[in-house]
Design a protein around this nucleic acid. Structure first.
Lengths: 229, 229
DNA sequence: GATGATTTGTACGTATGTATA
DNA sequence: ATATACATACGTACAAATCAT
């Protein structure tokens, strides 16, 4: 919690650092939706004045991660159940688009990398290595995003993924989820390897649908957003 | 119970006003990509100090409409040909997703409104009313975005549309473009009215593909982004 | 409902970094 | 290559709005 002075080796500007740090905490779930973010408090915490804090909040607000009502404290964007459902759905559509394009465009090297990663994950499933599988899962989807060879589409899907990520973290704790996830990935990989765009898109939609359902099982406790400070 | 102390005319804070105004000019093409936006100049123009200007620029930057290199003047985001192609492609995918969902979810009223608008536009095509058709075209696509009943997906597609809009303005000036556009819309409407999701998605992709090609014909004069001011 | 304490919105000053003659 | 001009990054000051009592 002690961030006394600013490190002289700055990767970018102070604002970017803060925005990244905060975005990270929001995405990781450390900062729960609804948490209020006073400018003064943040400034103290990061050892800067309110000006850069405000700018960072501006970025996060434009990213949709925080809400900023005029003259009131900013807060981590609370998400209604309806909005969350919509985001999962959009996520499915976006990833399906990625997969459709990836099936047609991936290089041989990319296809091999995808398959290798996927086959390697089989061992993690058998071992029940939840953490490791989660990481492999992230890389798997990342390869899909890159495979579509469209930076813009990748940006959209990554942004959406970040916004739903606090809610999908726990899904792998459901019994049997690892095995099912691997099987679903398998259908995706097969379709892509044989270059079947429509099948790939369809498989991804099916996969994301179950992810959405599994995640929803962990989000039963949100209704109206009561300010939880 | 509602007692807004502040006149609602002032639709938000100064920053929001400026951000909207600038975004509008960028989207309309009044501010060409590459145009440099000095903080001092903008502040003078809007009659405010640099602080709110900076915040507005932060918003626009996060939206991707302006680029903000550290310690240098901000500029209207220059777009490479590659990026533009990617955005048109993503636009097609997003609208196709909207259409797929719309075909399954639109209410009877929404279907009627879509069909009515479309049939009405036939007269505009015959009259060669370019301006009017362009407006009808906007409403047509807007109805698709609403018809998917997903606010999040709508936001994504609208944001993308705004970013490519400076480049698609001129497409209707191509000879025969109005007729072709109407025919393509017709395929979309028919698929939606009969509830055929896949056909609707496919028709939209085809439509956007030709829009992209028609627009590209007007964007032959951009290569590397030479600072143009 | 009125009043004092917080917090935000905006202005402006200074230091530092970048481009340019 | 050096110096000059200029634009940005951040800090501080104060008014207006909000909230808590």
């Amino acid at each position: 919690m002690t961030r006394p002075k600013r490190p002289l080796v700055r990767s970018g500007t102070t604002v970017e650092e803060m925005a990244r740090a905060l975005a990270d905490e929001i995405v990781r779930g450390t900062l729960a939706p609804g948490t209020k973010l006073g400018e003064g408090g943040l400034g103290e915490r990061f050892g800067v004045s309110r000006t850069p804090v405000r700018e960072a909040l501006g970025h996060l607000s434009a990213m949709g991660l925080v809400e900023r009502p005029p003259n009131r404290r900013a807060m981590v964007a609370p998400i209604t159940d309806r909005r969350l459902t919509e985001m999962f759905e959009a996520m499915g559509e976006l990833e399906a688009s990625c997969a459709r394009l990836a099936a047609a465009r991936m290089t041989a090297g990319e296809r091999n990398a995808l398959d290798a990663l996927h086959q390697g994950a089989r061992a993690l499933v058998r071992a029940g290595a939840q953490e490791a599988y989660e990481a492999a899962n992230s890389r798997f989807h990342g390869l899909l995003y890159e495979g579509c060879h469209s930076g813009y589409l990748r940006d959209l899907v990554v942004a959406t993924r970040n916004r739903v990520s606090p809610f999908r973290r726990a899904q792998f704790r459901l019994p049997g989820r690892l095995e099912k996830s691997w099987d679903e990935h398998d259908a995706i990989v097969r379709a892509i390897l044989r270059g079947d765009s429509e099948a790939a898109a369809q498989a991804v939609r099916a996969h994301l649908f179950t992810v959405s359902a599994a995640s929803a099982a962990f989000v039963t406790d949100r209704h109206a957003p009561p300010p939880k400070e």
